[in-house]
Structures are given as structure tokens and as C-alpha cells.
Design a protein around this nucleic acid. Structure first.
Lengths: 337, 337
DNA sequence: TAGGCTCATGACAACGTTGTCGCCTTCGGA
DNA sequence: TCCGAAGGCGACAACGTTGTCATGAGCCTA
């Protein structure tokens, strides 16, 4: 910038003014400066700029695994919103490790990101507390974090499973199985609770079996045979996420049984399968968008230390039942118990 | 940092030394400093650090759409490698717009990223030339960029289609159709060329029909009927990418015809379909990993302006044919012409 | 005991910007 | 003719680090 100043025979400050479109520069001077900028191929150094101004115009996103389409859709939405707010997005995958998550977050904090969006690992997040609200707003997505007060954007996991149960019951199913994913995951536990709640709410005429992953295919085949055996066997299954759905489809193929199925999570080829799979769909794009909005609204709010932080918000997004046909596959023989 | 220095009764520089694990500090002094750091909750400001040191320890990645699983897998690989090299990753989606791509790249350049990995849009990239090699190494992925000399990591698109053709021919197919994606995409054009080359190389006993997208489902159904009509109709189809594969599967279902199929691009549910789809698989993870390695090896190389840049490299990764069964679906009636 | 060496530490400038303030010129009005 | 205001511009400090060099204390050796 000092070179540009010399080249255009003006002061450093005038160049700065031109670069930032500040008023108080004569058009002809500005044009001369702009020409020097072009001639020298000058580029403002945002690092120095941010050092002066105190904001980095960047936010950090920590997900479990960026290669997972769910998280990448979320990331794309966050990036889209960020770009609109003229912020750049730093991304990293924690790969399920609370340790790595923390080291990523600290790296982001060292860079002075203006805000953080985190899909939290299963662990206390109290170590984050001093930063949050002091300096750097944080929004948690997909799961809440324990040990810390912060905004969160979640999916209505219980309601999603409930809609699946109701759908199955409406189609005459009376005995339903729930195959959850690993109970170490908050979402898996929530969905299980949703299943149990809705069964008990409906009334005693329904019964259900529950299992939680992770599953070996062989075990799943055995389980499927047990559950569906005899006149009191289950006639329908709800799978806890798309990973389990796939495994269950393999298990059905292997054991040559066809049960009604509602899967949690939509997937691209769901309606190319035979039968097309009915799913409870969650919208990662909306999740990311809402999280980014929540973050930027905090960023736009008062950042001085005097005014109290506004109350922590929890946003819960609805799921959507997409009916495709995998529920009609085995019309249950009305065994009204 | 100056506060820490006061608190520990040492100089600024000593704190800096402790923070950077530099030698020449007595253990007890270092411990005192570390305690002050903890007490004050000090965090080094990486922005200022980078301003001094000249490197930002960050790289930028521009893809077409982060929500696309192909690109997100690529991004995850790039991030994994970056993290190992202690670099953070900035990501953004150009959404197919050359304009947006350029504005993203300029934003990255303003931030002084140490390097760039770009999936280039279809446009001249000569505007980038002054930066590349001067300051910031650039690696292009998935497609080469025109108008600029830079490293590129690509997929062997032609070879991939060739392997599909050979596989089909080995299974007795003599008349094969190729459904490419939009010819505006470099990869689509390459795959088409691969198809035509391998047909003409094999010998005159094969014939092929070619169409390029984008497709409306109705048109695709019509096309399929035309191509497969009569005794000289095609018996097999190669689809140019997974988007086309899906459309073609719908078209087959609609028109109630079953042709042999090899799809370019693997997808998660390919072997849950009936029949399971044989595909030419490309590995986005390897693509991202190689690109990141290429970038970091440039970064590790001589960065002074005196030594000439080493020659531009082009890395071409192989594809892999995954045989699943969609080729055996219609054993062609050996119509040896 | 003097000279030189090592070790621990500190003073200071520099990185490339932007915010604050003050100066000079110009212009309009009294 | 003089004064005040406004516009255009520049000098300087500051942001939070790190690299360079200087300083002083302690120690070894001759």
C-alpha cells in the first residue's frame, strides 16, 4: 500500500480511503490511485485489516465428517448464508473425537473467527464457556451440547419417529420394531424415546420391540427372524437412520422376508428401490441455514460487554414424512389382538 | 500478550518465547508465564502472528457445490491432509458460476491463503496467472483450467468409459448407447470421446449411439425406445454420470425395458437396486488427497522468487470398474453381425 | 584478575492496515 | 477584506505479534 502511495504521489491514508471507498477523496485523485493499484497489482492484506478492525469476517464450522452428505449439505447451507453476509467459512471434521473437536475449535478461536457453528461430539463442553458470550458466539447444530449455555438448532427427532409410528398404525400395523443406531448418539436416543413415547401414548393395542446398534449384518438377520416369527411377530420396522436402513435392507434380502419399513433420513435413491422406501426426512439445508441465521443475528446484536446477552434460543425443525410405498408391501393380516 | 507480560513480570518477548516453545527461557520463568497465561485466559492472535510471519497457514478450496457428495468427499480429503500439515481450510461453492468462482478466489487471495485448490468452472482462467507462482500456488482438480499453467489432478475419464465399453463387449454386447451429461462440462466431453475412441479402436463389429444432456425424462424415454427398437437396437447403455444414471433408471422403469447398464460414478445404494448397478467408480477422496499433496509439496518447495518454479504436473487417477450385475440383465441374443 | 563465552532476558522495529486528528486550501458570505 | 466552514489530504499511532540485536550476569580459562 505504501508502494501504491508513492506511485500515485499521495499519502498512505489516501490509498486506504480509495480502497475502502471512503468519502473525502477527489474523483481524479481516486482514479490516479486506482490506476497505480492496477499497475502494481496491489491487493489489500485482509490479515492486517482485521488486526486493526478486530473482526475477521470469518466463521468456523465443525462437523463430524464433511464427507457425510448430511453434514456437507449442512455445510453448504452455512457457507451460502455466510457468503451473503460477506463472511468466509472455515470447515473441519472432528471425526467423532471430542479431542479433535476441541483442538479444531481452539485453532478457530486462535484465528479469531467471529463465530462458531458446531455439531458437538458426545462430551462436556464446559471448557468452551469462557469464550462464548465473552467474545465469540457459538451455535450448536443437530445435537445440544452439555455443560454450556448456547443457542442450538435441532431436529424434532421424537416427532419424526412419532409420525412414522402413526403412519404405520394407520396402515394397520400393530406390532412394530425399532432399530436404532448406537445409543451413544444423542439423536439415536431421542428417536428411541420418540418411539417408546408414541407407542405408549397410542394405547395398549400396539406393541413394540427395540434394539440399538451398531449392528453386524448376521446379527441383524437373526434379530429380524426372531422378531418376525410366529403370529405375534412384528409386521413393520422403523430404522433409526439411513445407515441402519441400508443394513436392514440387506438383512431383509438375506433372510428373504419383507416387512413394512419406514426409515429415518431420506436418501437419494429411496424411490428407485423396490419397493420405494417411505422415510422420515430431515432437512440438513434448513438446519445449516437456521444455524447460520442464528449465529449472524447474534453477531449483528450488541457486541459490547455492557449489555447482557439475549436469552439462549433453541430452534427445533420439523421432519417430513415422505410416503413411497414400503409400508404397503405386506398388508398385515388384521390380527386385532 | 502485553498483559501477560506485566502479570508475570517479564518482557513481551519472553512471553512470545514461551508461547512458541522457543529455547532460551528458564523453566521456572516459563512456568510463571504459563500460569499468567492461564490466569488471564490469554490466546495468541493468529492474525497478528501471520502478519509478522507472512504465512497464514490456511488454504482455500473452491468447488462447484459443497452439497454434492462428490465434492464434499473431495473437500473432506483436502481438509484431512491440511490438518496434518497444520493448515486450516476455507471452503466455498462457486455454484457453476465463473463469476462467483472468481470473486471467491479473490476473497481468498485477499486473505493471503497459502494455496488454492480449485474445481474450475468452464471459463478462461488467465486472470489468475499473475498470482500463481508469484505468490500463491494453485492446483486444479477434476478438470483442467484453460489459459493458465498450473498443476492439475484429474480422473482418467476416457479410460473409465473404455473399461465400461470393454466390459460390455466382453459380455457379448455389440450395440451400445452412450448417454452423456451436458457437453458444457469438460468431464462429459471427455467421457464421450472415451466412448467414441474405444468403439473405433475395438473394430467395426461394434456400433454406438451417442446423446448428450441435459435430459427431460420424457425425452429420455422416447430416446430409449428409439435406440432399443428393432433387431438392430442397442442392448446396453453407458451413462455419463450418476445424475444421468438415475434419470436413465427412471426412464427404463417408465418404458418397461431393461437394458444392460454401466454407470459412470458409484453411488451408495447401487447394489441395493435390482439389478445391482455395475459402475465405473471414481474416487473423490483420492482426488482431494492428491490435490492437497500436490499443493503442499509446492508449498514446501522453494518459495523465493529467484529459483524457477518446477514444471507443472498433471496427475491422472485411474477409475475402477465395479461389477455388480446390471450387465447380465439381458443376455443379448448373439447377433454377430 | 582480565578476557571471552554462554545464557537468559529485554528494547525496539517491523508486518500492512485503519482511526484520529490536524493542517492547508478553497469558497461563500458579511 | 476578513472570517468561518468545509473539503481534501497527510502525519502518526495503534492493532498483536515476531525477528534482530543489545545487555547484563555468571562462569570458565589463562
Amino acid at each position: 500500500m505504501v508502494d501504491v502511495a508513492k506511485h500515485a504521489h499521495v499519502s498512505l491514508k489516501t490509498v486506504s480511503r480509495v480502497v475502502n471507498d471512503e468519502p473525502g477523496v477527489r474523483p481524479e485523485t481516486a482514479e490516479r490511485v486506482r490506476e497505480s493499484i492496477r499497475a502494481l497489482g496491489f491487493r489489500r492484506n485482509d490479515g492486517a485489516r482485521q488486526l486493526r478492525r478486530g473482526r475477521t469476517a470469518s466463521i468456523g464450522l465443525v462437523v463430524e465428517d464433511l464427507a457425510n452428505p448430511f453434514y456437507s449439505a449442512l455445510a453448504a447451507a452455512v457457507e451460502r448464508v455466510s457468503r451473503r453476509s460477506e463472511h468466509l467459512l472455515l470447515t473441519a471434521s472432528a471425526e467423532g473425537s471430542a479431542l479433535r473437536e476441541r483442538s479444531i475449535v481452539e485453532a478457530f478461536l486462535d484465528r479469531r473467527v467471529d463465530g462458531l457453528i458446531i455439531v458437538p461430539a458426545e462430551a462436556e463442553h464446559d471448557w468452551l464457556s469462557p469464550e462464548v458470550g465473552e467474545r465469540t458466539p457459538v451455535v450448536f447444530v443437530d445435537r445440544p451440547a452439555t455443560g454450556i449455555e448456547a443457542d442450538a438448532v435441532l431436529i424434532d427427532n421424537r416427532g419424526g419417529v412419532r409420525s412414522a409410528v402413526e403412519h404405520l398404525v394407520a396402515h394397520g400395523h400393530r406390532r412394530i420394531g425399532f432399530l436404532g443406531d448406537d445409543g451413544a448418539f444423542w439423536t439415536a436416543r431421542e428417536r428411541r424415546v420418540g418411539f417408546e413415547e408414541s407407542l405408549s401414548e397410542l394405547n395398549a393395542s400396539q406393541s413394540g420391540s427395540v434394539a440399538m446398534g451398531p449392528y453386524e449384518l448376521d446379527d441383524l438377520v437373526t434379530l429380524l427372524r426372531e422378531w418376525s416369527a410366529g403370529p405375534d411377530g412384528i409386521t413393520a420396522v422403523i430404522t433409526g437412520n439411513n445407515r441402519v436402513t441400508v443394513q436392514f435392507l440387506y438383512a431383509m434380502r438375506r433372510s428373504d422376508r419383507a416387512l413394512a419399513l419406514v426409515g429415518f433420513d431420506d436418501f437419494e435413491y429411496a424411490d428407485l428401490l423396490d419397493p420405494p422406501i417411505t422415510v422420515v426426512s430431515q432437512d440438513p439445508d434448513a438446519l445449516g441455514e437456521q444455524a447460520a441465521h442464528a449465529l449472524f443475528s447474534r453477531l449483528a446484536g450488541p457486541s459490547d460487554d455492557t449489555s447482557p446477552r439475549s436469552a439462549v434460543r433453541e430452534i427445533v425443525l420439523p421432519t417430513r414424512l415422505i410416503v413411497r410405498g414400503s409400508v404397503d408391501v405386506t398388508p398385515p393380516k388384521e390380527t386385532t389382538s
